[in-house]
Simulated scan of single mutants.
Amino acid sequence: MTERAPEPSIETTLIHHPYQPPAGFSAPQPGVFKASTVIFSNVAAMRARNWKEKVGYTYGLHGTPTTFTLEERIATLEGGAHTVLVPSGLAAIALTDVALLRAGDEVLIPDNAYNPNKELARHELAGWGIAHRFYDPMDANALAASVTPQTKLVWIEPPGSVTMEFPDVPNLVRAARSKGALVALDNTWGAGLAFNPFKLEGGLGVDVSAHALTKYPSGGGDVLMGSVTTRDPALHLRLNAAHMRMGWGVGANDVEALLRALPSLPLRYAAADRAGRTLAQWWATRPEVAQVLHPALSGSPGHEHWARLCTQSAGLFSVVFDERYTARQVDAFVDALRLFKIGFSWAGPVSLVVPYDLSMMRKQPRWRGTLVRFSLGLEAVDDLIADSRQALAALDG
C-alpha cells in the first residue's frame, strides 16, 4: 500500500503555491519582474541558458523581461541595435572605458566634457596604466593630428558640458576613425531625438553611445540610470562581458519608471526645446549679459554644426554675465530666483539653475565672467521669464 504524502504546511504552501495565472494578459505597461534568483525547469535547461544573446534568463543581474524590454526600447531610441543598462550616466561612461581600454592604451576626451568623465581618466584610468589627453573639440584637424597608435578610444560630447559649444561631430568621428580609434559619444543632451549618433553624414556613425537616462528618458528627477548602446555585435559582447564582471545592475522599480516615462519623452523634449529657445532669446536682449550659449542661437559657438546635424535642442543653455558683475553679485541673482531651483542635473519637471566659475572649468576659457546654466522644466515659460526679470534686481543690490 502506497503511503499518502502528508498535506504541506501553510508555511510551505505559501511559498510553493500551485496556482499559475492564465496566459494572455496584456496592458499598456509591461510587467515588472523583480528577481535575483531565476528558476530553471531542470539542470539541462540551466546549463543551456545563454544570457549574452538575450535568449534566456540566468540571474537577475543579467536581465529580466523588464530590463530586456527597456534595453530594446533604448536601442531603438538611440538608433542602435544592442543596449545594456547601468546604474547612472557616469557608470555608462565607466563601462565604456573599462570594456574598451587596457593598460598602455590612450583615451582622448574633449576639454569641455562632463567633468566626472575627465576625473575618471585622471584618477582611476591613470592608476590602471591608461593614458589620457584632453583635446579642443572645436578643431577636428587638431584631433586628427593628435590620434596615435596608442589611442584606442575618442570621446565626443555634443554640446560641451555647461559651456555648450557644439562640435563638428561628423568630422570629429572621421578624424578618429582615420587613425583606427573607436568613437564613443555622450548622447545625453540629444536624448536620441536631436540626431542619430549612428547615422551621421557621409555614412559615418559612432561606435558607442552613452546616455544618462537620469535626464530626459526619466524626466522626473527621481531615477538614476544610464545606458550604453552600439550597433556592433562584437562590441556589444565586450560591453556585456565587462558589465557582467563589474556587477552593475539596475532596480526593477527604476526600470518601471523609465518604461512609464518613455512614451512622453518626445513631447517633453519638444516642450523643453521651445521654452529653452524662448528664454534664451529673451536673455540675448539683456544688457547684463555678455553672451548666451545655446546651440540653436546664431552666434553661439558651433551653431552652424548644430544646424547641419540637429532638428531639435535640449532645454538647456548658459548665460555669461558681463565682467562688471562679480561672482558674488551673480550668486545673489541666483539666490533671488524663485521658480528656478538651485541643483545639479537637468531635464526634470522643475527648472534648475547653477552658477559656474569658468576659470575653474577650462584650461583656456573662451569667456571671462561668471556663467549661469539654466535647465528648463515644464513650467510656463512666461513665468520663468518673469522670475528671471525680478531676480536681476539682486545684481545691483
Rank of each mutant, 00 (worst) to 15 (best):
A142L: 14
V334K: 11
F198T: 02
A194N: 01
L371P: 00
Q281H: 03
W155G: 01
I109C: 10
P149V: 11
P266Y: 11
V350I: 12
Q312S: 06
S345G: 02
E3N: 13
R373W: 01
A121V: 13
A92R: 09
A144S: 15
L316H: 11
R47V: 01
V381D: 00
A140M: 14
I10R: 13
H243R: 14
D136H: 14
L100C: 10
E11P: 00
Q29A: 09
Y216N: 07
G205R: 06
P159D: 11
A175D: 04
M1P: 11
V319C: 04
F333G: 01
K152F: 10
P167D: 08
V250I: 15
V289Q: 07
L235N: 07
L108E: 08
E53F: 07
E78N: 05
A332Y: 06
L384C: 00
G31V: 03
R122V: 12
D331I: 10
A307D: 05
F166P: 01
A391H: 01
G205Q: 04
F33V: 13
F321K: 05
P355H: 10
N117H: 15
A210T: 12
E165L: 12
T311L: 05
A91K: 09
P110R: 14
A5T: 15
D232L: 13
N171C: 01
S318D: 05
P116G: 12
M361W: 06
P87A: 12
F195T: 00
I342T: 12
P233A: 15
R338E: 11
R338N: 07
A81K: 15
P167W: 10
N240R: 15
R368M: 02
T370N: 03
F340E: 02
M360V: 09
G56H: 04
G104S: 15
L224Q: 13
E3K: 14
P287G: 06
A75M: 07
R268T: 13
R268Q: 13
V206Y: 03
L337G: 01
E11I: 11
A307H: 07
A391F: 02
T69I: 03
D254P: 00
P65H: 07
T37C: 05
V173D: 02
L120M: 15
Q20S: 05
M361D: 03
L224W: 14
Q390N: 00
A391L: 02
R328S: 14
V107N: 02
F340K: 04
S359G: 04
G80V: 07
Q364N: 08
Q20M: 05
H303S: 06
A75T: 04
V147P: 00
I156M: 09
A284H: 04
A99V: 10
V84A: 13
G249K: 11
